[in-house]
């Protein structure tokens, strides 16, 4: 901790306790995922048997596939809409209904899931009755619901990046003869790409994580991974879920570490510059 002389001792204690609180349960989960016993809480030796059972569990696997596709589609479209919304918020001068627009961008960040889920379901039912579309609920309706709340989070990420962006970079490009569109693709987009990537990842994890909204708007035939996990967890502890959790935690940690190492490298390089 020698590198952080700026952190007061009280904060340091809180940080340590806070991190213990955040990470201890996950460590326990990972340890028990290698438990041989069927009784989740009694240690009966090391085994990877539950990982095997997890991958043989067809319901779990098909739900996982569905969730991954859903998260991918959600993240991709959310990034486009979220970036557009962030451009509107940061770049376009006040227009008459900007306040309403701002409200619709910030409110989904805090709206309780049960309200969002119920209201979207009622919309879909109403639309199906009057317009005949969507004929059935499933992938499409969950995707619409997820894009709606994920784009708000992407907007937060993107608008903070766009706000920091030196506007004279874009003006310089225009001054050197680039068109507005050319400027966006040659200058703005490459510079905000890291933010786009983290916005995409955020939307991906949010979509992968959602249980409540998907439960409302999913049809009887479509099941996402959280829905499967929820119904098995509701009945009690399940060793397969332990294995799944361990896999998830380890992959997220790997991605997180990678991101950290990349920012570290960037910072190092920036510090090496002269002047």
């Amino acid at each position: 901790m020698a590198q952080s002389p700026g952190i007061p001792r009280f904060s340091r204690i809180c940080l340590s306790l806070g991190f213990f609180f955040l990470y201890a349960p996950m460590v326990v989960l990972i340890v028990y995922s290698f438990n041989a016993s069927e009784r989740v809480n009694i240690w009966a030796g090391f085994s990877t048997r539950w990982y095997g059972e997890l991958f043989r569990d067809d319901a779990m696997m098909s739900a996982m596939w569905m969730s991954l596709r859903l998260a991918f589609a959600t993240a991709t479209v959310s990034v486009v809409f979220g970036t557009l919304a962030a451009l509107v918020l940061t770049r376009v001068r006040n227009f008459r209904t900007k306040t309403l627009f701002g409200g619709m961008v910030t409110a989904p960040l805090v709206m309780p899931d049960v309200i969002t889920g119920l209201s979207l379901l009622l919309l879909f039912v109403g639309m199906a009755n009057t317009l005949g579309w969507p004929a059935e609920r499933g992938f499409l309706t969950i995707w619409i619901a997820h894009v709606t709340f994920c784009m708000a989070f992407v907007t937060v990420v993107m608008s903070s990046r766009l706000r920091e962006l030196d506007r004279s970079l874009e003006e310089a490009a225009m001054d050197l003869g680039a068109s507005r569109l050319g400027t966006f693709f040659q200058i703005t987009l490459p510079i905000i790409t890291p933010a786009l990537a983290s916005g995409w990842l955020l939307a991906f994890t949010l979509s992968l994580d959602d249980l409540v909204i998907a439960s409302f708007v999913a049809g009887p035939a479509s099941t996402t991974l959280p829905m499967v996990v929820f119904s098995s967890v509701r009945l009690g502890l399940s060793p397969q879920v332990n294995a799944l959790a361990a896999l998830l935690i380890l992959s997220v940690t790997a991605v997180g570490m990678l991101a950290y190492l990349m920012t570290l490298r960037d910072e190092r390089r920036r510090q090496r510059q002269p002047g």
């Binding site: 030196d166 004279s168 970079l169 310089a172 490009a173 001054d175 200058i187 510079i191």
Partner: peptide, 10 residues
């Protein structure tokens, strides 16, 4: 062409 105060180097 303009040279910006912040230089605006890409």
């Amino acid at each position: 062409n303009m040279m910006f105060q912040s230089y605006a180097l890409f």
